[in-house]
Each structure stands twice: as C-alpha cells, then as structure tokens.
Amino acid sequence: MRLYLELARTSFQQQFAYRAATLAGLFTNSIFGVMIASIFIAFYRSQGNDTVASWTPDQTVTLIWINQSLLMTVFIWGWWEVTRSIQSGAIVSELLKPFDYFSYWLSRDLGRAVAHFLLRGIPTFTVGAIFFDLLRPAGVAAAFGFLGSVTLAVMISFCLRFLSNLAGFWVLDHRGVSMMYVAIFNFFSGMLAPLDFLPDTVQTIARFLPFQAVLMVPNEIYLGRMPIWQGLGVQAIWIVLLTLLVKRILRAGEQKLVVQGG
C-alpha cells in the first residue's frame, strides 16, 4: 500500500513541473468552453430559451464547462504510455518489478488526476464562471457526490485507456486504435452535448456503455438530475467489470509478449 501511495505522490508532484503546458491547456479548454457554450446559448435563444430535451440553458452551459474542466482530470484521450512501453520494450523493466502492473499505473494515474483537478479543473471552471452563469451543485450532498463521482470517473477512464493501450500487444501502431477511441468517446460520453440531445436509440445504446459513466454521470449528480447513489452505483459496476476485463487481457498480452528491439 505504501508503494502505491508513493507512486501516486511522485506522479502528483511531476505534474507541477510542466508550467507552460498547464497554462496552454487552461487556455485551450477555456476557448473551447466559450465556443461550445456560445453555440448552445444561441441555439437556446432561437428556441425562446425553453428547455430542450429536459435540459435548461443554464444546465447545458454548466455541463459544457464541467466537461472542459474535467477533460484533463479524467484524461480522456492522448495517453499511450503503456502502448509506448510495450513497443519500446520498456515494459520489460516494469514487469520485472514485484508489483501489480495494473495497480502500478492506476496509482500513478490517480496522483496525476488529483494534480490535474487542481491545476486544470478548478482554474478552467473559474474562467467559465467569470464569463457565464454557471449553476452551483444541487446541494451539499450533490457536491460531495460529484467529487466521489469524479474519482470513480477517473478510474473508469483509466480502465478504458488502459484497455485501448493494451492493443499495443497485438498491433504495432496505436494511431488506428486512437482515432476510433476518440470518436467513440466523444459521441457516447456526453462530451459535446447532453446525451438526451441524441436520438432515442443512440441514447439507449449510450446508457449501456461505460463512456457516459465518465462524464454524464458526474454532471447529472452535480446538477441533481440523478440520484447520487444510482450514479455512483453504475460507476462502481463499470469499474468492477472493466477491471476484470483489463486483468484478463493483460494476462493474455503478457503471454504473447514479443519484446521489440531485443
């Protein structure tokens, strides 16, 4: 346990070394937040500022800013460290350590997520709150429920990323996997619009996929649209299922490990 805490701590500290990247990222998230929120505000205005698919204008704009703020915390795409490690052969040194490979990366990722929540999440949301009327959490319980839900969302997102990284055992180039993953995630997670805006069939499919548990669920808990325990329960189920799947595939991958570069 001590080891996993130490790993989380070092990875947390590491994030503070990238000052320029943090500022650039904050800038990018804010620009996208302003852009997407403005499009929705224009859209709502054309509808006479009525609710659309049961979402009020303020709720939708808040979701957009929560998504932009959580983007780096849950770290949706652009993480290929395990694939790179498989392909460079560095995975050999990692497998040679007496720790659980999955827990090793998970603890590092949790440390990273805490740092990103502080460095990217809160500042981005603050920028949003300055320019738009963002809603507060639906209550004290919803606020704590949201924090718990974000923690679980990081773990789900981590499992999904880890899974797509494991493709590296079988394919040599991760770009194909990467493109598919980004497209699927953006579509089914509620990243660009509340899921309720999508056609019914697509919504139903999305509700049975893990991606909505990464962004939609924390948003719905924050806004008081979903009972807290229901949201956390769904997320917990996904964590269990995905962890089992990851371990299974990891074992298969290790069996057929072909160490690149001697």
């Binding site: 560095a90 050999v92 040194s93 040679l96 350590k97 570069g261 001697g262």
Partner: peptide, 10 residues
C-alpha cells in the same frame, strides 16, 4: 533478482 539492461533504464 536484479536485472540491468545496458540498452535501457529501469
């Protein structure tokens, strides 16, 4: 065991 690969670092 301890392992050292000259070509890569652990």
């Amino acid at each position: 065991i301890g392992v050292v690969f000259g070509q890569r670092t652990q």
